[in-house]
Design a binder for these strands. Structure first.
Lengths: 154, 154
DNA sequence: TATTGTTATACTCTATAACTATA
DNA sequence: TATAGTTATAGAGTATAACAATA
């Protein structure tokens, strides 16, 4: 994308290329199930939390309640989840998987594992470990930049 | 995100965490300039192509002409580019940087280089090279998967 | 009073289809 | 006829604010 001629710039180019290719691959995979990234995130949170309220999902996804309303609308319309009255709190909504939703999340999990296999299978364990350590280092460096705020490059 | 307990799944988790943190960082940086990712892509293409038509930009960004209309609308309204009659083809529009747009792209370039430095400076050259080679390997593996189509995991 | 989730409204990105002006 | 870019329309994701129902 960025096409830099400097050494570290090229390295960052490569990382960005990976992020692009990876996200395209995941988008395609999700689309083949009739899902978007945001809706899949919601399903994933629901798998981790179990049946829960929209408020809880809003916190889990770090989006507004309004956004959850829209995502759940879409997932209900496409048959992945149900919206039912909350057993104890009559203000709240209970969001649960349909059969189809549960099956789909299981399929996504399998697809994820298969992708991981396809990416790393055959690579010597030590090499994978070193690679992962390098990435974790980058994540730490990025978080430090973020914390200190580096918007002052205008 | 995915929290897998298997070895390769964990490695993929780490890669995804990097993509999330990286894209959050870039979103913040662009937002501090009053830009979105899509609009910044357009500016980037414009820097590479020089003043050009919307049609050319549509091809460069691989989006529809309609989408370019919207992006250019936004960039004109916020003062990054100008829309002028094309010198020779009266159907077409000539998109150029404003002073502010040109200055902003230059600042983005500097910010990109600074980010690359912050991520890789201090890392032994050989280690960076090995890391980049690993990422390139993943990109190749992903492209192979994509080519063969792997949607059949339902 | 505080909380849950809605409607109302708005902005961004994306698309297809129909249409205008020009090649 | 083909091309450039528009309007019309639509859907997805995101947000804030006002409001209803309930706690």
């Amino acid at each position: 994308m960025m096409r830099y001629t400097h050494k570290f710039g090229q390295a960052l180019d490569t990382v960005l290329e990976l992020t692009v290719v990876l996200s395209e691959d995941m988008d395609r995979g999700l689309a083949s199930h009739g899902l978007t990234v945001s809706r899949a995130h919601l399903l994933w949170a629901l798998r981790q939390l179990g049946p829960t309220t929209q408020r809880t999902l809003a916190d889990a996804l770090a989006v507004s309640p309004r956004t959850i309303t829209g995502l759940v609308d879409g997932l209900v319309a496409t048959g992945f989840v149900t919206r039912e009255p909350h057993p104890t709190d009559r203000r709240a909504t209970h969001v649960s998987f349909t059969e189809h939703g549960a099956r789909t999340v299981a399929a996504l999990e399998r697809g994820y594992e298969e992708l991981a296999q396809a990416l790393f299978a055959g690579t010597p364990a030590g090499e994978v470990d070193r690679f992962v350590a390098s990435i974790e280092d980058l994540v730490v460096r990025l978080r430090n930049l973020t914390t200190r705020g580096h918007d002052g490059d205008q």
